[in-house]
């Protein structure tokens, strides 16, 4: 750009100052006649895209058992480290979470946990209304997270496919599993 000098430079600066202010004023004033982007929340609910990610829930498999097997993948995928849990195991060998805690005051709803979850247990819902007066109340435990249904993947049942024997499903009874090998057989 050509550098203005002397008097021309002063005129340019003054002009530039007034021009930008006038443009701004005009633009702001013009918004008086445009439609507002905001909505009258909460009387009027906003549009949420189908894949909107909000409050996290823990789902159950089709048989009603907790889907979460406490594998810890969600916790390790979480960029804000806001998930923690502890594995426990029942007599039949089924893993589940002894406690499952999400600190929603840190959660950024990125959905990495849902992506990491190998059992479709952790899912993000459309609920974003999490505001609290006390930040401490944003710490959700398992009983706050667990819902009664399977959520987005109604038919998936991890233990059907895992090959691990748990209550109600013996070895070899899962999908695509052969009968347990009979070691005493001499047949070819």
């Amino acid at each position: 750009m050509k550098q203005k000098t002397g008097l021309g430079q002063y005129i340019y600066i003054v002009w530039d100052y007034f021009y930008s202010n006038i443009v701004t004023l005009v633009k702001v004033a013009s918004h008086t006649f445009t439609k507002a982007d905001t909505v009258e929340y909460p009387e009027q609910m906003p549009y949420l895209a189908p894949r909107f990610r909000g409050r996290i829930v823990l789902t159950r498999d089709p048989t009603g058992e907790e889907r979460c097997v406490a594998c810890n993948l969600c916790a390790s995928a979480c960029p804000t480290d806001c998930i923690s849990l502890q594995k426990t195991e029942d007599e039949s060998g089924r893993w589940s979470a002894e406690y499952f805690r999400i600190n929603f005051s840190r959660c950024v709803f990125c959905g990495m946990c849902e992506e990491a979850c190998p059992t479709y247990a952790i899912q993000l819902t459309q609920d974003f209304e999490l505001a609290e007066y006390e930040r401490q109340n944003m710490v959700y435990e398992k009983q706050h997270l667990l819902i009664d249904g399977p959520g987005k993947h109604p038919d998936y049942n991890f233990y059907e496919l895992s090959g691990k024997a748990v209550s109600g499903r013996a070895k070899g009874a899962g999908t695509q599993e052969a009968e347990p090998v009979n070691l005493k057989s001499l047949l070819p």
């Binding site: 810890n72 390790s76 979480c78 804000t80 480290d81 923690s84 805690r101 600190n103 710490v139």
Partner: peptide
Amino acid sequence: HRASGRTSLYANENVS
């Protein structure tokens, strides 16, 4: 470097 749960482990006691 992959340790998880830093902001959640003790959040039940104190969220800060």
